[in-house]
């Protein structure tokens, strides 16, 4: 294995790991709020679950980019391409947007989701508004995902 491929693997690892951390924190934060509301109003479970699942997407985006890097570099098929150090670095940097933004936006989206969950607890009809507010945070994770993907497709090997 060349140094280049190792750097690319580091890129894949970091975007799955950081975005995963963000989502895990976000879902945990929303989950705590949802459990509290659920104790009082168990019939809201469905609505709360939707809100709790929202911060989970960053982890999926990170995973997605990680797999795309693995596919492009041949890691997943067991025949890694010999990358130069420059190419490896390119993959690493392409993974950074979703890794970093996924991490932070996951955390902040989780907090927004928790607040929306509490709002839903007080007024179950407001859950759609809460979902929209929570989804606004995700916009930036989606943009970062898009940048990561477009960068990935721009790398020539």
């Amino acid at each position: 294995m060349s140094t280049g491929i190792i750097i690319a693997i580091f890129g894949a690892a970091i975007c799955a790991a950081l975005a995963g951390i963000g989502s895990a924190y976000g879902v945990q934060c929303a989950g705590q709020a949802a459990a509290g509301v659920c104790a009082e109003k168990p019939d809201l479970f469905g609505k709360l679950l939707v809100l709790q699942a929202l911060p989970g997407t960053q982890g999926i985006y990170g995973f997605l980019v990680a797999v795309l890097i693995m596919v492009q570099t041949g890691v997943i098929s067991g025949a890694p391409v010999d990358l130069t150090i420059q190419q490896g670095l390119a993959y690493l940097f392409a993974g950074l947007p979703i890794g970093i933004v996924g991490w932070w936006s996951g955390i902040y989206q989780g907090k927004t989701a928790a607040a929306s969950i509490l709002m839903t607890g007080k007024d179950p009809d407001a859950s759609a508004k809460g979902i929209t507010m929570t989804a606004l945070v995700e916009t930036y994770a989606i943009l970062a995902l898009l940048v990561s993907i477009l960068l990935l497709f721009g790398i020539k090997i």
């Binding site: 999926i60 985006y61 795309l68 989606i142 993907i149």
Partner: peptide
């Protein structure tokens, strides 16, 4: 609206 692309890719790639 570029989110349409991102979500479509996410569905497809996963």
């Amino acid at each position: 609206y570029s989110r349409i692309l991102a979500l479509s890719l996410a569905t497809g790639v996963i």
